[in-house]
Write a protein that binds this DNA or RNA. Structure first.
Lengths: 132, 132
DNA sequence: CTTGACCCTGACATTAATGGCAGGGTGTAT
DNA sequence: ATACACCCTGCCATTAATGTCAGGGTCAAG
Protein backbone atom coordinates (compact mmCIF):
# COMPACT_ATOMS: atom_id res chain seq x y z
CA UNK A 1 0.00 0.00 0.00
CA UNK A 2 1.28 3.49 -0.78
CA UNK A 3 1.56 6.38 1.60
CA UNK A 4 -1.70 8.06 0.61
CA UNK A 5 -3.73 4.99 1.38
CA UNK A 6 -1.98 4.40 4.68
CA UNK A 7 -2.69 8.00 5.58
CA UNK A 8 -6.37 7.58 4.79
CA UNK A 9 -6.57 4.36 6.76
CA UNK A 10 -4.82 5.59 9.86
CA UNK A 11 -5.70 9.27 9.99
CA UNK A 12 -2.04 10.21 10.16
CA UNK A 13 -1.07 12.88 7.64
CA UNK A 14 1.36 11.97 4.90
CA UNK A 15 3.74 14.44 6.45
CA UNK A 16 3.56 12.61 9.74
CA UNK A 17 4.09 9.22 8.17
CA UNK A 18 7.26 10.48 6.55
CA UNK A 19 8.33 11.95 9.86
CA UNK A 20 7.81 8.65 11.66
CA UNK A 21 10.05 7.06 9.09
CA UNK A 22 12.72 9.72 9.55
CA UNK A 23 12.58 9.03 13.28
CA UNK A 24 13.13 5.34 12.72
CA UNK A 25 9.66 4.25 13.75
CA UNK A 26 8.66 2.60 10.52
CA UNK A 27 10.63 1.41 7.50
CA UNK A 28 8.58 0.88 4.37
CA UNK A 29 10.11 -0.77 1.32
CA UNK A 30 10.79 1.33 -1.74
CA UNK A 31 9.53 0.54 -5.20
CA UNK A 32 11.81 1.02 -8.20
CA UNK A 33 10.29 4.47 -8.76
CA UNK A 34 11.13 5.52 -5.22
CA UNK A 35 7.59 5.26 -3.84
CA UNK A 36 7.18 3.91 -0.33
CA UNK A 37 5.45 0.54 -0.16
CA UNK A 38 3.90 -0.29 3.20
CA UNK A 39 3.01 -3.80 4.33
CA UNK A 40 -0.39 -4.45 5.84
CA UNK A 41 1.24 -4.58 9.26
CA UNK A 42 2.07 -0.91 8.85
CA UNK A 43 -1.48 0.07 9.59
CA UNK A 44 -1.43 -1.34 13.09
CA UNK A 45 2.09 -0.08 13.55
CA UNK A 46 1.04 3.48 12.82
CA UNK A 47 -1.96 3.23 15.12
CA UNK A 48 0.35 2.01 17.83
CA UNK A 49 2.72 4.90 17.26
CA UNK A 50 -0.11 7.40 17.42
CA UNK A 51 -1.43 5.84 20.55
CA UNK A 52 1.88 6.29 22.33
CA UNK A 53 2.18 9.82 21.01
CA UNK A 54 -1.20 10.56 22.55
CA UNK A 55 0.20 9.38 25.85
CA UNK A 56 2.70 12.18 25.48
CA UNK A 57 5.71 10.02 24.70
CA UNK A 58 8.26 11.27 22.22
CA UNK A 59 9.14 9.49 19.00
CA UNK A 60 12.51 8.75 20.55
CA UNK A 61 10.96 7.01 23.52
CA UNK A 62 8.57 5.11 21.30
CA UNK A 63 11.43 3.99 19.11
CA UNK A 64 12.97 2.45 22.21
CA UNK A 65 10.30 -0.15 22.61
CA UNK A 66 8.13 -0.17 19.51
CA UNK A 67 9.63 -3.30 18.04
CA UNK A 68 9.06 -5.11 21.27
CA UNK A 69 5.46 -4.11 21.84
CA UNK A 70 4.55 -4.89 18.26
CA UNK A 71 5.58 -8.48 18.72
CA UNK A 72 4.30 -9.26 22.21
CA UNK A 73 2.15 -7.87 25.00
CA UNK A 74 3.35 -4.60 26.40
CA UNK A 75 3.93 -6.03 29.86
CA UNK A 76 6.60 -8.30 28.46
CA UNK A 77 8.69 -5.36 27.32
CA UNK A 78 10.95 -4.21 30.10
CA UNK A 79 11.85 -1.01 28.27
CA UNK A 80 8.29 0.25 28.61
CA UNK A 81 7.86 0.51 32.35
CA UNK A 82 10.62 3.05 33.06
CA UNK A 83 9.33 5.26 30.28
CA UNK A 84 5.83 5.12 31.72
CA UNK A 85 7.12 5.87 35.17
CA UNK A 86 9.13 8.84 34.13
CA UNK A 87 6.30 10.17 32.01
CA UNK A 88 3.93 9.72 34.90
CA UNK A 89 6.22 11.73 37.15
CA UNK A 90 6.31 14.47 34.51
CA UNK A 91 2.59 14.57 34.20
CA UNK A 92 2.02 14.65 37.90
CA UNK A 93 4.41 17.55 38.27
CA UNK A 94 2.59 19.37 35.51
CA UNK A 95 -0.76 18.71 37.08
CA UNK A 96 0.49 19.97 40.40
CA UNK A 97 1.82 23.12 38.80
CA UNK A 98 -1.35 23.74 36.82
CA UNK A 99 -3.44 23.10 39.87
CA UNK A 100 -1.52 25.72 41.78
CA UNK A 101 -2.09 28.23 39.02
CA UNK A 102 -5.72 27.26 38.73
CA UNK A 103 -6.30 27.81 42.43
CA UNK A 104 -4.54 31.13 42.25
CA UNK A 105 -6.68 32.19 39.30
CA UNK A 106 -9.84 30.99 40.99
CA UNK A 107 -9.04 33.03 44.07
CA UNK A 108 -8.34 36.11 42.06
CA UNK A 109 -11.49 35.73 40.03
CA UNK A 110 -13.44 35.30 43.24
CA UNK A 111 -12.00 38.53 44.56
CA UNK A 112 -13.48 40.33 41.58
CA UNK A 113 -16.93 39.12 42.49
CA UNK A 114 -16.64 40.02 46.16
CA UNK A 115 -14.47 43.09 45.82
CA UNK A 116 -17.10 45.47 47.22
CA UNK A 117 -16.11 44.75 50.88
CA UNK A 118 -12.46 44.44 51.93
CA UNK A 119 -9.24 44.44 49.96
CA UNK A 120 -7.48 41.50 51.63
CA UNK A 121 -5.37 39.26 49.46
CA UNK A 122 -6.16 41.29 46.40
CA UNK A 123 -3.42 43.77 45.86
CA UNK A 124 -0.64 41.74 47.40
CA UNK A 125 0.83 39.19 45.13
CA UNK A 126 1.38 35.53 45.97
CA UNK A 127 5.00 34.68 45.06
CA UNK A 128 4.37 30.91 45.52
CA UNK A 129 4.11 29.49 42.01
CA UNK A 130 7.06 28.79 39.81
CA UNK A 131 7.71 27.74 36.22
CA UNK A 132 10.10 25.57 34.15
CA UNK B 1 19.24 52.51 37.75
CA UNK B 2 20.78 50.63 34.84
CA UNK B 3 19.72 47.32 33.44
CA UNK B 4 22.27 45.22 35.30
CA UNK B 5 21.15 46.49 38.65
CA UNK B 6 17.49 46.01 37.83
CA UNK B 7 18.31 42.49 36.76
CA UNK B 8 20.05 41.78 40.05
CA UNK B 9 17.22 43.26 42.03
CA UNK B 10 14.40 41.46 40.29
CA UNK B 11 15.96 38.18 39.26
CA UNK B 12 14.96 38.76 35.64
CA UNK B 13 17.82 38.29 33.20
CA UNK B 14 19.04 41.27 31.25
CA UNK B 15 17.86 39.50 28.15
CA UNK B 16 14.36 39.24 29.59
CA UNK B 17 14.28 42.88 30.62
CA UNK B 18 15.08 43.89 27.08
CA UNK B 19 12.43 41.53 25.83
CA UNK B 20 9.80 43.04 28.10
CA UNK B 21 10.67 46.40 26.67
CA UNK B 22 10.39 45.12 23.11
CA UNK B 23 6.94 43.78 24.02
CA UNK B 24 5.89 47.16 25.29
CA UNK B 25 5.72 46.17 28.94
CA UNK B 26 8.24 48.66 30.23
CA UNK B 27 9.73 51.82 28.77
CA UNK B 28 12.94 52.99 30.44
CA UNK B 29 14.43 56.34 29.57
CA UNK B 30 17.63 56.48 27.58
CA UNK B 31 20.73 58.27 28.70
CA UNK B 32 22.76 60.23 26.17
CA UNK B 33 25.05 57.24 25.72
CA UNK B 34 22.12 55.00 24.85
CA UNK B 35 22.01 53.19 28.18
CA UNK B 36 18.59 52.37 29.60
CA UNK B 37 17.75 54.26 32.77
CA UNK B 38 15.06 52.68 34.92
CA UNK B 39 13.07 54.52 37.53
CA UNK B 40 12.66 53.01 40.98
CA UNK B 41 9.11 52.07 40.03
CA UNK B 42 10.56 49.72 37.45
CA UNK B 43 11.46 47.24 40.12
CA UNK B 44 7.91 46.64 41.17
CA UNK B 45 6.79 46.78 37.59
CA UNK B 46 9.11 43.95 36.65
CA UNK B 47 8.03 41.87 39.61
CA UNK B 48 4.45 42.40 38.55
CA UNK B 49 5.24 41.32 35.02
CA UNK B 50 6.97 38.20 36.26
CA UNK B 51 4.11 37.39 38.52
CA UNK B 52 1.64 37.44 35.66
CA UNK B 53 3.99 35.43 33.51
CA UNK B 54 4.07 32.81 36.24
CA UNK B 55 0.31 32.66 36.03
CA UNK B 56 0.82 31.60 32.44
CA UNK B 57 -0.31 34.82 30.83
CA UNK B 58 1.48 36.01 27.71
CA UNK B 59 3.30 39.31 27.43
CA UNK B 60 0.55 40.43 25.08
CA UNK B 61 -2.15 39.77 27.63
CA UNK B 62 -0.15 41.43 30.35
CA UNK B 63 0.37 44.47 28.16
CA UNK B 64 -3.38 44.77 27.96
CA UNK B 65 -3.84 45.60 31.61
CA UNK B 66 -0.42 46.30 33.12
CA UNK B 67 -0.82 50.04 33.17
CA UNK B 68 -4.09 49.68 34.95
CA UNK B 69 -3.01 47.22 37.63
CA UNK B 70 0.10 49.24 38.37
CA UNK B 71 -1.99 52.24 39.31
CA UNK B 72 -4.87 50.69 41.23
CA UNK B 73 -6.05 47.40 42.73
CA UNK B 74 -6.44 44.61 40.24
CA UNK B 75 -10.16 44.27 40.85
CA UNK B 76 -10.70 47.76 39.49
CA UNK B 77 -9.31 46.80 36.11
CA UNK B 78 -12.04 45.39 33.93
CA UNK B 79 -9.57 44.11 31.35
CA UNK B 80 -8.21 41.61 33.84
CA UNK B 81 -11.19 39.42 34.55
CA UNK B 82 -11.80 38.12 31.01
CA UNK B 83 -8.13 37.25 30.69
CA UNK B 84 -8.25 35.32 33.96
CA UNK B 85 -11.40 33.54 32.90
CA UNK B 86 -10.06 32.47 29.57
CA UNK B 87 -6.78 31.38 31.11
CA UNK B 88 -8.67 29.42 33.73
CA UNK B 89 -10.64 27.61 31.05
CA UNK B 90 -7.36 26.78 29.31
CA UNK B 91 -5.81 25.45 32.44
CA UNK B 92 -8.79 23.36 33.36
CA UNK B 93 -8.83 21.79 29.91
CA UNK B 94 -5.15 21.01 30.26
CA UNK B 95 -5.62 19.52 33.67
CA UNK B 96 -8.46 17.37 32.40
CA UNK B 97 -6.34 16.15 29.51
CA UNK B 98 -3.33 15.45 31.70
CA UNK B 99 -5.51 13.68 34.21
CA UNK B 100 -6.82 11.38 31.49
CA UNK B 101 -3.29 10.55 30.45
CA UNK B 102 -2.18 10.10 34.01
CA UNK B 103 -4.98 7.64 34.70
CA UNK B 104 -4.15 5.76 31.56
CA UNK B 105 -0.50 5.56 32.53
CA UNK B 106 -1.34 4.52 36.05
CA UNK B 107 -3.49 1.69 34.75
CA UNK B 108 -0.83 0.51 32.39
CA UNK B 109 1.83 0.62 35.06
CA UNK B 110 -0.44 -1.33 37.36
CA UNK B 111 -0.84 -4.00 34.70
CA UNK B 112 2.91 -4.49 34.75
CA UNK B 113 2.84 -5.26 38.44
CA UNK B 114 -0.09 -7.67 38.23
CA UNK B 115 0.66 -9.13 34.85
CA UNK B 116 1.28 -12.68 36.15
CA UNK B 117 -2.46 -13.58 36.15
CA UNK B 118 -4.75 -12.54 33.29
CA UNK B 119 -4.19 -10.36 30.25
CA UNK B 120 -7.33 -8.20 30.45
CA UNK B 121 -7.05 -4.60 29.35
CA UNK B 122 -3.37 -4.93 28.74
CA UNK B 123 -2.80 -5.63 25.10
CA UNK B 124 -5.81 -3.75 23.82
CA UNK B 125 -5.28 -0.07 23.46
CA UNK B 126 -7.60 2.57 24.90
CA UNK B 127 -8.30 5.05 22.08
CA UNK B 128 -9.91 7.56 24.48
CA UNK B 129 -7.37 10.28 25.00
CA UNK B 130 -6.64 13.07 22.58
CA UNK B 131 -4.13 15.92 22.19
CA UNK B 132 -3.63 19.58 21.25
C1' DC C 1 0.64 14.14 -25.66
C1' DT C 2 -1.85 16.10 -22.09
C1' DT C 3 -4.33 15.98 -17.85
C1' DG C 4 -4.74 14.83 -13.15
C1' DA C 5 -3.84 12.19 -9.28
C1' DC C 6 -0.35 10.47 -7.11
C1' DC C 7 4.51 10.39 -5.26
C1' DC C 8 9.33 12.34 -4.09
C1' DT C 9 12.88 15.55 -1.39
C1' DG C 10 14.12 19.62 0.89
C1' DA C 11 13.24 23.57 3.31
C1' DC C 12 10.99 26.95 6.09
C1' DA C 13 7.27 28.12 9.62
C1' DT C 14 4.91 27.34 13.78
C1' DT C 15 5.05 29.13 19.72
C1' DA C 16 6.95 32.10 23.45
C1' DA C 17 10.24 33.38 26.33
C1' DT C 18 14.80 33.01 27.02
C1' DG C 19 19.94 31.93 26.31
C1' DG C 20 23.92 33.10 24.09
C1' DC C 21 27.11 34.96 20.77
C1' DA C 22 29.48 38.49 17.83
C1' DG C 23 30.99 42.93 17.26
C1' DG C 24 31.21 47.04 19.16
C1' DG C 25 30.77 51.40 22.39
C1' DT C 26 31.29 53.63 27.39
C1' DG C 27 33.30 54.78 31.58
C1' DT C 28 36.24 54.37 35.50
C1' DA C 29 40.31 53.04 37.94
C1' DT C 30 45.01 52.12 37.71
C1' DA D 1 46.63 54.07 27.76
C1' DT D 2 45.01 49.82 29.25
C1' DA D 3 42.23 46.81 31.66
C1' DC D 4 37.73 45.65 33.15
C1' DA D 5 33.08 45.95 33.94
C1' DC D 6 29.45 47.59 32.02
C1' DC D 7 26.19 48.67 28.14
C1' DC D 8 24.32 48.45 23.16
C1' DT D 9 22.04 46.00 18.79
C1' DG D 10 21.18 42.19 15.99
C1' DC D 11 20.96 37.56 15.18
C1' DC D 12 20.48 32.55 15.74
C1' DA D 13 19.01 28.64 18.69
C1' DT D 14 15.91 26.26 21.57
C1' DT D 15 11.34 21.94 21.42
C1' DA D 16 8.65 18.49 18.79
C1' DA D 17 5.49 17.23 15.72
C1' DT D 18 3.18 18.97 12.02
C1' DG D 19 1.72 22.16 8.13
C1' DT D 20 2.85 23.84 3.89
C1' DC D 21 5.40 25.35 0.09
C1' DA D 22 8.39 24.74 -4.23
C1' DG D 23 10.12 22.12 -7.74
C1' DG D 24 10.02 18.01 -9.68
C1' DG D 25 9.05 12.78 -11.10
C1' DT D 26 5.43 8.72 -12.27
C1' DC D 27 1.75 6.70 -14.34
C1' DA D 28 -2.76 5.67 -16.05
C1' DA D 29 -6.68 7.31 -18.80
C1' DG D 30 -8.29 10.02 -22.37
Amino acid sequence: MKIGELSRRTGASIRSLRYYEAQGLIAPLRESNGYREYSTLAEEQVRTIRFYLQLGLTTEQIAGFLNCVLSRPETFCTEVLPVYESKLADIEAQIAQLTRIRDNLTDRIASFRGESKQGEGVSKRDESSERR
